[in-house]
Amino acid sequence: MKKPAQEYPVLLDVQDITRLYGPAKGCEAIDFRLHAGEVLGIVGESGSGKSTLLRVLAGLEAPDAGRVIYRRSSNEPEAARTGTGKHESGGDQKENAEAALDLYAIGEARRRALLRLEWGLVHQNPRDGLRMGVSAGANIGERLMAQGQRHYGQLRATGQAWMRQVELDPGRIDDAPRTFSGGMQQRLQIARTLVTRPRLVFMDEPTGGLDVSVQARLLDMLRTLVRQLGLSVVLVTHDLAVARLLAHRLMVMRHGQVVETGLTDQILDDPQHEYTQLLVSSVLTP
């Protein structure tokens, strides 16, 4: 039997991130590393700065201070992964050479390309992540078309394959997302995000607003996908049950600061910080 690798490379290096809208509003001095293939959960009450932190990490909002470093593994050039060298042509050689990208130093064009090609973002409300006016198939195909895929038949086949993968009926590929239920819209958003096989995915309360049975199936599906695709995930949630199911490691936030970090079961079963203890004990059915 082959031993699993002990050292996973660092994918995201977050150095001293601060983004404050006011005193204790936002996030302050956040420092952590995300390794390849790891699912990091960020938990905390509403207003603790989780979502602000996620927006900064995902390149949507510049921090007041600190750096977000994204490390590409050098043996996996971008062009080979995405299947198109077209978009980054010219800068290709240079980019592969520099494996570490400072997210807010590389310029908007490259940051947006990164978001589109190598990263994914799953919003809490699927309506923020989907184009509600166009069909499910067009939603799934959009990122592929942005990468330069120009074959309708292939786009459609990929769309149907992904609908099966997220347990949607492929026969509904031409239906508008608004005719889907909340849980189905969330599945569609996940398919749309994962279709380009991103390396790093940010999820903001992916199961928020769904009823419990739908949540359970969605979580099950997410867990399978994360393992199959070898995704690295930053997951923001206030639901400890979701964190327990998906996350390998947890970060507990309060008033914009990290109060405790550790392995998920360690934090949930043996919380050290008083706030974490309060959080864990306030769950009705742990």
Binding site: V134, A146, D174
Partner: peptide, 22 residues
């Protein structure tokens, strides 16, 4: 304007895709 500046034209094909699908 940003999409033009950065040549992010994938959505134009979304429209054509939608035409063929319908």
């Amino acid at each position: 304007r940003l999409m033009h500046a950065l040549e992010e034209y994938g959505v134009m094909h979304v429209k054509l895709y939608e035409d063929i699908a319908r």
